[in-house]
Design a protein around this nucleic acid. Sequence first.
DNA 1: TTGTAAGCGTTATCAA
DNA 2: TTGATAACGCTTACAA
Lengths: 363, 363
Amino acid sequence: MAATIIDVARRAGLSTATVSRALRGLPNVSESARARVQQAAEELSYTVSPIASQLSSGRTGAVGVVLPFVNRWFFGQVVSGIDSVLRANDMDLLLYNLGDTRVHERFFERMPVRRRVDALIVLTLPLSEDETRALSSLAVPVAVLGEPTPPFWNVRIDNSVAAATAVRHLVNLGHRRIGLITGAAHDPRRFATPILRRDAYRTALEAAGIRYDPRLEAMGHFGIEEGAAAMAQLLTLPEPPTAVFAESDEMAFGALRTLRRMRLRCPEDVSVIGFDDHETAHLMDLTTIAQPVVEQGALLARLVLKALAGSHEEPSDTVLPTRLVVRGTTGVARRDAAPGVPPSPGAATDNGTGARGARSPVP
Amino acid sequence: MAATIIDVARRAGLSTATVSRALRGLPNVSESARARVQQAAEELSYTVSPIASQLSSGRTGAVGVVLPFVNRWFFGQVVSGIDSVLRANDMDLLLYNLGDTRVHERFFERMPVRRRVDALIVLTLPLSEDETRALSSLAVPVAVLGEPTPPFWNVRIDNSVAAATAVRHLVNLGHRRIGLITGAAHDPRRFATPILRRDAYRTALEAAGIRYDPRLEAMGHFGIEEGAAAMAQLLTLPEPPTAVFAESDEMAFGALRTLRRMRLRCPEDVSVIGFDDHETAHLMDLTTIAQPVVEQGALLARLVLKALAGSHEEPSDTVLPTRLVVRGTTGVARRDAAPGVPPSPGAATDNGTGARGARSPVP
DNA sequence: TTGTAAGCGTTATCAA
DNA sequence: TTGATAACGCTTACAA
């Protein structure tokens, strides 16, 4: 069917070895030989078989990307960052979506990446010791997005600092009842991100001399709907929060919707701060903690490529900066009535735009 | 390093052929042999080398997915649909993000998927005749999301019907000046979707006896920011539209933001309808045309797997249904002042919630 | 049911 | 600079 290197060699009147060298642009090939090979290959519209090449050389030309979700904004952005770097280096990208626990377990049982990839990038998955060992045994460079996982390369943000900044922002605005919508899920895998952000929330409260109240923490599972439900739950408290820190923008969006539905103004009645600087955050005028998402992906890819190129650098741990982006959904704390009840009949339909003008949280 | 099939065979006291058969669960292997192989493999923590297996069998165990963007909501959803089906069938997913024109051209020049994949799924990319031929020459099943591209399998929605429905919805509400925010971009590749939707818009207007005005069409490039700019442009017209059809929800989000910034109420001053039923559309109370996104991906994957399984069915063309989802951003046409000017001073800060209550377009 | 051995299409080593 | 040829690790006729 398709031409092989033998066909090309025959047509060029050379050996397969020379053809192979010529095609890969290796030195020690005469110009004339190179030209003849080029032409023969073209005439036969020959392409090397990556499979055969891989088997022979031991290199696969592919990088595996292992992640827990493909259809969430954050991961799409990261993958796009990885892809751009990989593609620029003629590397393939093999996607492994670990989805639920079953798929996750199966992955580590069967290790489908074994001998399939030259390097591995793991996104935000908590790795057990066994799993870490399993990945090490692959004997390929591994880069991890998230908490430091020796002996792998690491890229991350400082979730503790970032979350503390979010909470302090609310504290500085005079808030004392500060709720948390956490991403921590029932998933038996304990994703580190929500835990770190939640712990930072608690610590920051304590540092501000605010007593911790477990009822002010609601689960949002990193989803819009779940974020909305979490906000609703917080509002049923006898003393509802005057401000809420959502561990992701998507949950914050849900929270905003609930506020709107309950006829509560944001930020007059309840302030909301998110996390990520999702592309829609700007649109919703959401105050948030911005992190470089695409860049984290690109960096991960660059790290494994460098390791692949034979750099004998020790795996590093890179912490990328986050920053507070103040928009219209956070404001000074109210000092009068409880937020559960609209302060005046008119406010129910006002939506807060009168007071805040252009800084209202709605598009 | 890693154990090979020969090691397993030796340990089990069998031939490599038997080991291979046993490991793949083929018939004609005695129970005792199967058990010995299992145990030997386990003890050596042996995994087959997919590469070697591929070279030998001619199957790659991977499906290529070619798409123009990874970081857009729509494509993330489709990929997630594909992935779930593929993963359930132990197939790998090789991602090819064609991004800009240069990468696109390079892809078809070098055909990196050649012999790398057992099947190919192409998402919404307009294929030239040469490109179609190139893909055919791969001699693997190809499934295309988008316009029918014989001789490939096809999955799509009826963009013309869907877009016409959107426009008719506006017409039925009494609108006569109906703007279009089209996704058609400067990309030399002529993506079919925006063109189909735009043509349907024109046809639907004509059918309603409304004269076509090219000034009512603005480019939104399928982006939020660009959608916002397009809306702003439409509002500068001497006679601005009272309703706008955005060819994607993301552009509609941008349009809503512009309306908000210009102190125009939605839908009182301008109605907006989007396309996709993006997960945020609900949140923004955006009227839109819903299409099954994840399902289209899953279906594409199932089609190529079926073809791979040896079904000799003729490639089909499946059209999935869309439906109008009426929410709060569309309303009856105003009959008094031009929308460019707020009808009353108070309206500028009212945001329309007074009149529409829960149906206001904001969360 | 099991084993032998010929591929699969390259790359890489070594000698020429 | 070029060429023979042995891997690479598996699958699959075909034979036993």
